[in-house]
Design a protein around this nucleic acid. Structure first.
Lengths: 149, 149
DNA sequence: CTTGATGCAAAATATTTGCATGCTC
DNA sequence: GAGCATGCAAATATTTTGCATCAAG
């Protein structure tokens, strides 16, 4: 697990490099995503920040602007599935893939070394220089299977 | 390469099963995505259909409704990268995975038993009933690496 | 101080919905 | 004919932008 401090430091470095300013709103968004595991819409993040920092002023526009910035710096990642719009999560150092329940929409992360390694081998066998990859397993989670439907 | 005819047949079967109707708009959207490789926004698809079928009436609402339907039936897939919104492409055969060259756009299919098996194991370990999966490896193909750029 | 950031509200986009009418089956 | 699908326009939802003001460096 990457400690929050190091993410915060990365944010500060990126801002310095780009000659942008460190603000409490930017920090609050990063920290909120760090403290809450999950994939959230900008609107949800806006609500979470407002309730975690009741005294701080923040507008939805700032949330959008900050998420774009954080995403460019790879401090957060976005994913979009099915009918839902874009959702954000804290950027993980480690690459991970997703299990997506097509009934309830729940997204579960996993990381499997065998798959990771095998992907490298496949790429190599095609003389392909892999820069990135994405894998999603769709299906029905145990909760949804139990509760019928 | 899956022939268009079989996709069309899948669409007809799905509609029959769901007691929905086969319309020229639904067919036009499927065919347009089949004939144009790439990832398009609903608005772009709307424009493409209008120019391919100048006599046919179609509204943007129908494009949205049809894309949702086609996606549910896995005849098309949606993806969203970085800043872009949701984009659709013709559905790929599920039992194949893809290597995608980000320089020339070439898509190579492959199927790797180790990965397939491991996906099943992962799903099982999460007590998840896998119905489908998608995996993409992005990178630079050998041709593009050789010819510089 | 200088310059970028913010909140707000308005504007621009994107997506969904209600409804009268048109088409499949 | 019955009932789903469509186009249109209106309604919503989502995201971006302009601008006066605020605050970081």
């Amino acid at each position: 697990m990457v400690p929050y401090e190091s993410l915060l430091q990365e944010l500060k470095n990126a801002l310095k490099r780009r000659k942008l300013k460190f603000t409490k709103q930017r920090e609050a968004i990063l920290q909120t995503l760090f403290e809450n595991e999950g994939h959230f819409s900008p609107e949800e993040i806006y609500g979470m920040v407002k309730s975690s920092y009741p005294d701080m002023k923040i507008g939805i526009a700032t949330v959008y602007r900050s998420l774009s910035l954080l995403e460019e710096e790879k401090l957060v990642e976005s994913i979009s599935f099915g009918k839902e719009g874009k959702r954000y999560e804290i950027g993980m150092k480690k690459h991970h893939d997703h299990l997506i329940c097509t009934v309830c929409g729940e997204i579960t992360e996993f990381c499997d070394e065998t798959i990771e390694k095998q992907q490298e081998r496949v790429a190599e066998s095609f003389d392909f220089e892999m820069t990135d990859h994405s894998m999603r397993i769709y299906g029905i989670c145990s909760k949804c299977r139990k509760h019928g439907k």
